[in-house]
Design a protein around this nucleic acid. Structure first.
Length: 796
DNA sequence: GCTACTACTTAGCACCGCCGTT
DNA sequence: AACGGCGGTGCTAAGTAGTAGC
């Protein structure tokens, strides 16, 4: 893909551009790039600001930036976006209507069509899929049979999105009731610790540890080669907690110095274990997997109002060292083993209560019909509450997902007025309102997170409301430079041209609070959300992010896709639109170490294909000279010079010789094993001679450019056909390369999963005849089942 | 009003298994 | 058959936001 569509007038470009390409890592200090009075020009000049109507563009988030392709971010404004889609207000009441659906699942895991309660279920039903699992190959062989079976296994999928409002009365109660009956088998605890007995060293000498101390030491040893083990905070917290554990058993040695600890022996043991695991035979691996599935089986599903649903995380989190991200003060702290006595279950009054592990009991068993969690416990490191929920594919998750996107879509209708209002309030004499308006501007235009306040015992990260003095630098006349650590300590760096009044406000607020303090000192997320709620029912700060993401995606997709594009081109457009959203939401990833290498290899492969195409063309000319003058056959390959061709051909020949030799050896080995006489050396010579001939031919062809011997049964038609196929392969590979390059520092997954209304994608697939599997993997298809049947005309 | 608690969504990391390559 | 790279998935941390309790 030559990127030559540099054709947009500057004035239409997105008003700002991401300034720094390098991704930033957790915990890296945020440098204060410049003082307010001496803006760093190298940072500033990257932004182009031209005051146009685009600035009043109601639709395009300012943050529609892109490091390498600002042109794509430019948007032509359309007030027309406003009028479309009469939003149906009717929120369908959910009912219990069931629809029979064939399961798409190919895995042979489909279960009996009887939808039974777990109390009556168990072994018989649960064992069935298990026994099948080990015989995947067999199943493939007997595909026909399995097809029949699949139909037998037709399963009821609750299509809640199709359920009519006048349905059952069962779910008519208030919206806070989430279920009438809830049954499940509780949670799965990690196995008890089994000591390995490997002695680590202290002060150079092997030491014997109590099992408990050994376990904790092993947690650390496992991370020895990771960044965590080198993090002083991590070391400190681990060592403190480990010493406590050591003290519990008087037989443990006295350990006082972290520096004298040598965890390497344990680390090496784990490495060996990994190696062993790799060496296991297929059968062994399969057996282990089967055992695992068997243990999991009872916990995989829950029953909500009689309907079978997948459970998400039924496993109780195992003990370990807390791996806080960024500069978390508690990182490395020992996360203790959770006992059943700490776990509360939530299920129906009349449901069978799952048995706690032997000798234990549950903390509590409740029947909270307003909650969707199945189990909960409190974790010791931060005192946060953990939950077991249903899986992403469940009705509960699907419903709230749909509601989320519908709400974001609702915002479309309100956004114009909201913008008008806050723009006015930017001038309000009441500072609290002015701050609120300014914050709303940032949340709306940059898709920032709300920014709740955080404690001292957490990593220092911020969002909009918690931005501090040093997080925004001003550059006259109205550029704001953002640089702060956001969620997960991901750095947000962005330079934005803003409304003059926003600039003035930030300047004023900063002056009022001074360094180290929060810029919006009169604003809290609660206050902001209260106000947002009064603007539109149910509105909160995060809705803007969803709205902006989905809206951007819809726009970019419409703009980039063309009816006649090839499938790879369409996919590139899709991914580009996706990418724009990821950039907007600052979903970064660090470029993999092998990225450059990967790109090189791709390029080499592309060239190899081009070379083949060239040869085909020459053949064509030999067959039908008139093509010599016809486009595109007469075009030269831009990135393939004589030198490259010579090198490539030499490589090809080398490979051919190698192949011939290997083939010869293989044949002989085979003959030997069959007790027959090996082929004579002359056989190999024969093959090599053919290669020599090929080499000579290539050299000759190279000299007499484009003149080629016609081989075998080449006909004009066939060659033309082959050339076309080659064209397609080359185009596809080039597109793939472009895609990969543009993706190297951006993670698409998060926006796809959480921010982009899947109905946009499904409608697009329909409209442009793209298989849905191209845009969603199996998991996402399941998660977004509710969106799948939208009309091709549907828009966000 | 404030803080603490609760419930749920959003997020990146690490590992695993598959698939194409050698 | 081994290898290695990559996408998918599991895991759980880290957010948002509403509510409960003072």
């Amino acid at each position: 893909m030559s990127d030559s569509e540099d054709d947009l007038p500057l004035a239409q470009r997105a008003v700002q551009i991401k300034t720094t390409a390098s991704p930033v890592h957790r915990g890296s200090p945020v440098p204060l790039r410049m003082s307010e009075d001496t803006p760093d020009p190298s940072q500033a000049h990257t932004s182009v600001y031209i005051k146009t109507e685009e600035d009043s563009d109601d639709d395009m988030p300012l943050a529609m930036r892109s490091n390498n392709n600002a042109k794509r971010s430019a948007t032509i404004k359309s007030e027309s976006d406003e009028e479309d889609i009469p939003l149906s207000k009717k929120r369908k009441k959910l009912s219990l209507k069931k629809t029979k659906v064939k399961r798409e699942d190919e895995s042979g895991l489909a279960t009996s069509k009887r939808s039974r309660a777990p109390s009556s279920s168990s072994d018989e039903e649960d064992a069935k899929p298990l026994s099948k699992r080990g015989k995947i190959k067999k199943e493939e062989k007997t595909k026909k049979t399995s097809k029949v079976k699949k139909e037998e296994n037709e399963e009821e999928i609750y299509k809640w999105w199709e359920a009519s409002s006048s349905g059952d009365k069962q779910q008519e109660q208030d919206e806070t009731t989430k279920w009438m009956t809830l049954q499940h088998n509780g949670v799965l605890f990690p196995p008890d610790y089994e000591p390995h007995g490997v002695k680590m060293k202290y002060d150079g000498k092997p030491i014997t540890l109590s099992p408990e101390a050994e376990e904790v030491a092993s947690f650390f040893a496992a991370l020895l080669e990771s960044d965590h083990a080198k993090n002083p905070t991590f070391q400190k917290n681990f060592f403190r907690d480990w010493k406590d554990v050591l003290k519990k058993d008087p037989r443990n040695p006295k350990i006082t110095s972290f520096e004298k600890c040598d965890f390497r022996p344990i680390w090496e043991k784990f490495e060996k274990d990994k190696e062993k695991k790799k060496q296991m035979t297929k059968e062994e691996k399969l057996r282990i997997k089967e055992e695992r599935t068997k243990i999991e089986e009872p916990f995989i599903h829950a029953y909500v109002d009689g309907r079978k649903e997948k459970v998400g995380n039924f496993r109780i989190e195992p003990p370990g060292l807390f791996r806080g991200r960024g500069d978390h003060p508690k990182t490395g702290t020992l996360k203790q083993r959770v006992a059943p006595e700490q776990v509360t279950l939530n299920l129906s009054k009349d449901a069978k209560i799952p048995k706690p592990p032997k000798g234990h009991k549950w903390a509590d068993v409740v029947n909270d019909q307003t909650a969707t969690w199945l189990a909960t416990w409190k974790e010791n490191v931060n005192g946060t509450i953990k939950y077991v929920f249903l899986a992403q594919s469940s009705a509960w998750k699907g419903q709230s997902d749909m509601q989320k996107f519908d709400k974001a879509r609702d915002l479309k209708k309100y956004v114009k007025q909201i913008r008008k209002d806050y723009t006015k309030e930017l001038y309000d004499k009441e500072m609290a309102k002015r701050q609120r308006a300014t914050a709303m501007y940032l949340i709306d235009r940059l898709a920032l997170r709300a920014g709740n306040e955080k404690g001292d015992d957490e990593a220092d990260t911020v969002g909009c409301c918690s931005l501090r003095y040093e997080h925004i630098q001003l550059e006259p006349p109205h550029t704001l430079h953002f640089d702060f650590l956001g969620k997960d300590s991901i750095r947000y760096q962005n330079s934005v041209q803003v409304e003059t009044q926003v600039y003035k406000n930030i300047k004023l607020f900063k002056k009022q609070v001074g360094p180290g303090s929060m810029i919006f000192d009169r604003l809290t997320t609660t206050g902001l959300n209260k106000h947002l709620n009064s603007c539109m029912p149910g509105l909160s700060a995060k809705v803007f992010r969803t709205y902006n993401a989905s809206h951007t995606f819809q726009q970019q997709l419409d703009k980039l896709t063309h009816k006649d594009d090839s499938l790879p081109d369409k996919m590139l457009s899709f991914n580009r639109a996706n990418r724009d959203v990821a950039v907007l939401c600052n979903h970064q990833r660090s470029a993999s170490k092998s990225h450059g290498q990967m790109m090189e290899r791709l390029q080499d492969r592309t060239r190899a294909l081009k070379y083949q195409r060239m040869k085909l063309r020459h053949t064509l000319f030999a067959l039908e000279p008139s093509y010599k003058k016809k486009s595109p056959y007469n075009e030269l390959e831009s990135d393939m010079d004589d030198e490259w061709i010579a090198n490539h051909e030499t490589e090809l020949i080398v490979k051919e010789r190698e192949k011939a030799r290997i083939k010869f050896e293989k044949q002989n080995e085979k003959l030997k094993s069959e007790g027959e006489r090996p082929l004579p050396e002359s056989h190999l010579k024969e093959s090599l001679k053919l290669v020599d001939e090929m080499e000579a031919r290539l050299i000759k062809e190279r000299k007499k450019k484009g003149v080629i011997e016609i081989k075998g049964k080449a006909t004009t038609e066939r060659v033309l056909n082959n050339i076309e196929k080659m064209d397609q392969r080359i185009a596809a590979m080039k597109i793939q390369a472009t895609d990969k390059e543009e993706n190297k520092e951006i993670a698409l997954g998060t926006s796809k999963m959480n921010y982009i209304d899947p109905r946009i994608s499904f409608a697009w697939c329909q409209k442009y005849d793209v298989p849905v599997q191209k845009v969603f993997n199996k998991t996402l298809l399941e998660k977004f089942r509710w969106a799948q049947e939208v009309n091709a005309k549907w828009t966000f």
